[in-house]
Amino acid sequence: MNGSRAGSPAGPGPNRRRFLAAAGLTAAGATLALTQGRAGAGPSRRPAAGGYRVPVEDVRHTRTWMTWPDSTAIWGGGRLRGIQADIALIARTIAAYEPVTMCANSASAARARSMCGSSVTVISSIPVDDCWTRDTGPVFRTDGAGGLDAVGLNFNGWGDKQTHRSDARVAERIASYVGVPFTRADFVGEGGAVEQDGAGTLMATRSSLLNKNRNPGMEQGTLEAAMRDAYGASKVIWFDGVYGQDITDDHVDATSRFLAPGEALVQMPLASDNDDYAKDARQQYRVLTGSTTADGRPMDVMKLQGPDYEKIRSTDPDFLASYANFYLCNDAVICAHFGDEGADAAAKATLARLYPDRTIEQLNIDRLGTGGGGIHCVTQQQPVA
């Protein structure tokens, strides 16, 4: 996920959610991460075979899963309330279209219920560390015949950059709550690091997954095979990505998204932008336009113009202004606006054209954006089986 302002030099080191000084891995935390292994709960197991695959995200959902942030160690006391307000706004907006289940720690469940309102179901039986459910939650799969299961991607705090004692087990605990079989992928990653078209094609950045902080020593072919097994896919389209400049090492879902089998969208920078993320976006567009789908068809690639960072509301250097990080729920597209009025309106019009049968809900989530994330990052869909 891009955590830097477009058009300006990328800052040194990880910069999404500047928590490292306040809540970085202490020696004890690092030891915990090592002893927990890939996911903190037993050995990895290859996902069961048998026709299961992760569907494209515009299928109907049973519900959306979210997680409630309550850590002042991560967010600081002055920022946490605003982050919670943005999470609650997203949850309430989605809940107008489909059920939302929010996982909250027991100590903060009452606040979550108060801020989210009665339309959102808050449960306190699944402990969490933070709000990034796209990365910590299970990846649900369907078999086209009424079957549903879930895969865990062995979340390790984006390469042990953040403590994750509870978040490492969110995926399996949600699967248990739903009552579906759960298996672990044979690689370490996050949901935001992989995009799927539901028909056999994946896309991802090497910087996130082919990285020693997730999968040390793993060759690309081995990693690709594990991704195909987990997602029920047969092809991976790779982008180089951006190493070490944000906590996610450049998640693909901030820049490129699948709309349907054979159809993709890339958020493009301004022509004058030339930072690492702008170069990365242009490279993703070039790679996709020269790629084919799993069944050999040429990719149809559309552009979504990003905003001018000089015109957006936020001046935070870590702000993520990603229209591409939208979330599809039943009958709606939930996306962000950033204060560049022309670009905001154009993005909304583009999404309305791409999804003519859905309502476009455009939200101000600037406080979440200063954490380097967006709406897709904090949601995880449970598809109808």
Rank of each mutant, 00 (worst) to 15 (best):
R165N: 14
A171C: 10
D275V: 01
Q245H: 15
E263P: 05
A168F: 02
Q305I: 07
L304W: 03
V178E: 10
R228V: 08
N213C: 03
R173P: 13
P307I: 04
F258L: 09
S272H: 07
I247D: 12
A193D: 07
V178H: 07
R206M: 07
E190F: 02
V242R: 00
D197F: 03
A193R: 00
V242Q: 01
D250M: 15
Y231T: 02
T248V: 10
D240V: 08
R228W: 11
Y177W: 13
N274D: 09
A278N: 06
M227P: 00
P307Y: 07
T293Q: 07
Q267A: 07
S234M: 10
L209W: 07
P269Y: 04
A278R: 04
S208P: 11
K235F: 09
Q283P: 11
A233F: 00
G179T: 00
Q305N: 11
M227I: 02
M218A: 13
G232I: 02
Q284M: 12
D240C: 15
A168R: 01
L304T: 02
Q305Y: 11
Q283K: 15
A175N: 04
E263G: 08
N274K: 01
A199I: 03
R297A: 14
E263C: 12
A168K: 00
A254H: 13
Q267T: 02
Q196W: 12
E219V: 12
T248Q: 09
N215Y: 06
F258N: 04
A264R: 02
A171Q: 10
D229P: 08
A204M: 12
L265M: 05
Q267R: 09
D197C: 08
V178D: 11
D253K: 01
D240L: 14
Q267S: 09
R165T: 09
D276W: 07
V194L: 14
G221N: 12
A230W: 02
L270H: 09
A175E: 13
